[in-house]
């Protein structure tokens, strides 16, 4: 009887509300992503999340929760986890549009001044090679070139977390050369000598991969 009546304009009870079948899952995934990512600015991040979702782009979501959340006030806001999210969103293209990148940066609640500072290290127009931006980001995370390379390996590797964090030596040397060239303190001869010594280790292994233990422990001994 009730169903035969035209739907009244006023809502009287919960049963009158039609819940789209896909809504619960969307909300659930959205919530899980928010808890995992812990965005500093929830509103900004939410806008980015749904804009990516509606376009079918990779989502601005961390794979897992990152611990050093408490120190966020003291550092630049950029973390390895956030850089990894950016990598997930951008790495499918060799070059990324700067405006697009800036929006993604903003949606991760990172201060835009830091984005500009980062680009000042290697000024470019309109677009940047993703690998270069990632390299610059890594150098922002860690003090020394070596820590930056460690971050890079951990982001790029397909090894499980806590594993050897191997990356192709070709990529490694490309980024290493790029970063050391930006740092005028490092003579080119030193860079090349260092890379050659690493090349020998890699060659003996035949798969062309370099892992954390190949270069990170090495410098600690020195």
């Amino acid at each position: 009887m009730r169903r035969a009546m035209p739907l009244p304009d006023t809502m009287f009870c919960a049963q009158q509300i039609h819940i789209p079948p896909e809504l619960p899952d969307i909300l659930k995934q959205f919530t899980k992503a928010a808890i995992r990512t812990q965005p500093a600015d929830v509103l900004q991040w939410s806008a980015g999340y749904f804009s990516a979702l509606s376009r079918g782009d990779p989502l601005p979501v961390k794979d897992r929760i990152e611990m050093p959340m408490a120190t966020q006030k003291t550092d630049t806001g950029l973390t390895q986890g956030l850089l990894k999210v950016l990598h997930k969103q951008c790495s499918h293209k060799q070059y990324v549009d700067l405006a697009d990148l800036e929006q993604k940066w903003k949606n991760l609640c990172l201060p835009i001044e830091n984005f500009r500072t980062l680009l000042q290290l290697d000024p470019c127009e309109n677009k940047i090679e993703w690998m270069k931006f990632l390299a610059l980001g890594c150098s922002m995370l860690g003090g020394s070139l070596n820590t930056a390379m460690k971050h890079l390996c951990e982001i790029l590797t397909t090894d499980p977390e806590g594993g050897p964090a191997r990356v192709p030596f070709e990529t490694f040397s490309y980024v290493y050369r790029y970063l050391s060239r930006l740092d005028s303190d490092i003579p080119e001869a030193d860079t090349e000598a260092y890379l050659t010594s690493l090349q020998d280790t890699v060659n003996s292994r035949k798969n062309g991969m370099i892992g954390l233990s190949d270069f990170f422990a090495l410098t600690r001994k020195v």
Partner: peptide, 19 residues
């Protein structure tokens, strides 16, 4: 808002909503 508007494309609606 989603329940009120019953949009066809929820992600697009949500994106516009937050925007």
């Amino acid at each position: 808002e989603i329940l009120r508007e019953q949009p066809e494309n929820i992600p697009a609606f949500a994106a516009a909503y937050f925007e």
